[in-house]
């Protein structure tokens, strides 16, 4: 209707819907991230745990990104919640600031590239850097992190962590597997979106 005049502002009704969606998907993301990161409790698979998180959470994230209208605000709150949850669980302020930065970047990527595959895919890859940073304190403040895990895990696991912290390569591998998981997960998510969500009208 060309004659209808609007104020140019987005309606506050869609804002409430966006905020509700942020809450729902944040709850789902935290549950899925914790479940899939439990792979890392097997010492040999520590390095792969970030990949499994990115792989499993790609589908919900694609759906989340395609449903929100205010990308930057929603991504920022979403990542802020995850970072705060990690902060409360003893991860330190570094994780919180990384989360907020990642949220901002993902929101900007969605805004710039739009809601097409390119936008969703790039935002998904940026967001996987957040879950991949969970192990970062092992390298940035090794002693504190080992002391922290010593109160929680047995001697064998801590020894394995200490061995990993000796060289920077496992850190590179952690990020590489995280990004690989997000890339593979992104392609799976695109197929799933086409096959299921677009067909039943949940996503455009």
């Amino acid at each position: 209707m060309p004659n209808v005049k609007t104020t140019g502002k987005k309606s506050s009704n869609t804002l409430v819907r966006d905020l509700v969606n942020v809450g729902i998907f944040a709850a789902l993301y935290i549950v899925l991230a914790f479940l899939s990161s439990s792979v890392g409790y097997i010492p040999a698979l520590i390095v792969f745990s970030t990949g499994s998180i990115a792989l499993v959470t790609s589908i919900p994230l694609f759906l989340f990104f395609s449903k929100i209208e205010r990308s930057i605000l929603c991504c920022l709150i979403f990542c802020g919640f995850f970072g705060t949850a990690m902060f409360v669980m003893g991860q330190g302020i570094l994780m919180l600031s990384i989360s907020l930065l990642v949220g901002l970047l993902a929101g900007v990527a969605l805004k710039v590239f739009g809601k097409g595959f390119a936008g969703l895919f790039s935002a998904n890859i940026i967001l996987c850097l957040m879950s991949s940073s969970m192990m970062l304190p092992l390298w940035t403040s090794t002693e504190e992190y080992l002391e922290y895990t010593r109160t929680m895990c047995d001697a064998g696991y801590v020894a394995k962590l200490a061995e990993l912290s000796q060289s920077p390569w496992p850190l590179v591998a952690i990020y590489a597997f995280g990004i690989l998981g997000a890339v593979v997960g992104g392609f799976i998510a695109r197929r799933v979106m086409k096959k299921h969500f677009e067909r039943i009208g949940l996503a455009k």
């Binding site: 905020l19 509700v20 942020v22 809450g23 729902i24 709850a27 789902l28 709150i77």
Partner: peptide, 17 residues
């Protein structure tokens, strides 16, 4: 803007399970 998603999130954990 923070309270609404936080409330939904807290209410949603049991629903997810």
């Amino acid at each position: 803007k923070v309270t609404i998603p936080l409330t939904v999130m807290i209410r949603f954990f049991p629903t997810v399970f």
